[in-house]
Lab assay of single mutants.
Amino acid sequence: DVEEQIRRLEEVLKKNQPVTWNGTTYTDPNEIKKVIEELRK
Protein backbone atom coordinates (compact mmCIF):
# COMPACT_ATOMS: atom_id res chain seq x y z
CA ASP A 1 0.00 0.00 0.00
CA VAL A 2 1.61 3.22 -1.21
CA GLU A 3 -0.14 5.43 1.35
CA GLU A 4 1.20 3.25 4.16
CA GLN A 5 4.74 3.46 2.74
CA ILE A 6 4.48 7.25 2.49
CA ARG A 7 3.25 7.47 6.09
CA ARG A 8 6.18 5.36 7.30
CA LEU A 9 8.70 7.45 5.38
CA GLU A 10 7.21 10.67 6.77
CA GLU A 11 7.45 9.31 10.33
CA VAL A 12 11.13 8.49 9.81
CA LEU A 13 11.66 11.92 8.26
CA LYS A 14 10.24 13.61 11.40
CA LYS A 15 12.66 11.63 13.57
CA ASN A 16 15.63 12.55 11.34
CA GLN A 17 16.55 8.90 10.90
CA PRO A 18 18.09 7.32 7.81
CA VAL A 19 15.77 5.44 5.47
CA THR A 20 16.72 2.36 3.49
CA TRP A 21 14.69 2.19 0.29
CA ASN A 22 15.25 -0.37 -2.47
CA GLY A 23 18.70 -1.16 -1.09
CA THR A 24 19.79 2.48 -0.89
CA THR A 25 20.16 4.27 2.45
CA TYR A 26 19.09 7.90 2.45
CA THR A 27 20.21 10.13 5.31
CA ASP A 28 19.42 13.49 3.69
CA PRO A 29 15.86 14.68 4.44
CA ASN A 30 15.66 16.17 0.95
CA GLU A 31 16.45 12.78 -0.59
CA ILE A 32 13.75 11.15 1.56
CA LYS A 33 11.27 13.80 0.40
CA LYS A 34 12.14 12.94 -3.21
CA VAL A 35 11.39 9.27 -2.52
CA ILE A 36 8.01 10.30 -1.03
CA GLU A 37 7.28 12.43 -4.10
CA GLU A 38 8.11 9.50 -6.39
CA LEU A 39 5.71 7.28 -4.46
CA ARG A 40 2.91 9.82 -4.83
CA LYS A 41 3.06 9.69 -8.65
Rank of each mutant, 00 (worst) to 15 (best):
K14I: 12
W21S: 01
V12P: 03
E4M: 08
N22R: 07
I32F: 06
E10N: 06
E31H: 07
E3R: 13
V2P: 06
Q5P: 02
P18M: 11
E37H: 06
I32M: 03
R8F: 15
D1A: 09
E3V: 11
D1Q: 06
P29A: 09
K14W: 11
E4C: 03
P29Y: 09
L13W: 06
E10S: 04
V35M: 12
T25Q: 09
E31N: 04
Q17P: 05
R40F: 05
P29H: 10
I6C: 03
N30F: 12
T20F: 12
T24F: 12
T20E: 13
K14S: 15
Q5K: 07
Q17E: 15
N22T: 02
L13E: 02
V35K: 04
K41L: 14
D1K: 09
Q5V: 14
E38A: 14
L9P: 00
W21R: 00
R8A: 15
D28E: 11
R8Y: 15
E31S: 08
V12C: 15
R8V: 14
K34E: 07
V2N: 06
N22L: 10
V19H: 04
K41E: 12
E38Y: 09
R40Y: 11
R8S: 07
R7M: 07
E31L: 10
D28I: 02
K41N: 15
T24K: 07
V12F: 15
K34F: 06
V19M: 09
T25V: 13
K34W: 11
K41R: 09
E10D: 04
T20C: 05
L13N: 02
T24R: 13
D1W: 15
K15A: 13
E11A: 08
N30Q: 14
T20K: 07
Y26S: 01
K33C: 04
N16M: 11
D1T: 12
P18H: 13
V19I: 13
L39I: 06
L13M: 11
E11Q: 12
K14C: 04
P29M: 15
P18K: 11
L39S: 01
I36W: 03
E38G: 07
D1E: 11
I6S: 02
G23W: 01
P18C: 07
E11M: 10
K14D: 12
T27Q: 08
P18R: 05
Q5W: 15
N22M: 13
K14H: 12
D28C: 05
I32W: 02
N22G: 12
P29C: 05
K14A: 15
Q5T: 14
E3Y: 13
K15V: 05
V35N: 01
L39K: 00
V19P: 03
V19W: 14
R40K: 12
R40M: 10
T27S: 09
E3H: 10
P18Q: 11
E31P: 01
E3I: 08
P18A: 11
E3D: 12
V12R: 15
Y26R: 00
Q17D: 08
K33S: 09
V19D: 02
T27P: 02
I6Q: 01
Y26K: 01
K33V: 09
T20P: 02
L13F: 08
E11C: 04
I36S: 00
L9E: 01
E10W: 10
L9D: 00
Y26V: 04
K34S: 08
V2G: 04
E10F: 09
W21Y: 13
V19E: 02
E11K: 05
G23R: 00
W21G: 02
Y26F: 10
K14G: 10
V2M: 09
K34H: 09
E3N: 10
N30I: 14
L39Q: 01
N30R: 12
E38M: 07
R40C: 02
V19N: 02
R40P: 01
N30H: 10
K33W: 14
T27D: 07
K34P: 00
R7G: 05
I6R: 01
T24E: 07
D28M: 04
R7W: 07
L39E: 01
E31G: 04
P29L: 09
I32Q: 01
D1I: 10
K15I: 09
N22V: 03
K34Q: 09
L39W: 03
L39N: 00
I36M: 05
L9S: 00
V35H: 02
N30V: 14
V19Y: 13
V19R: 00
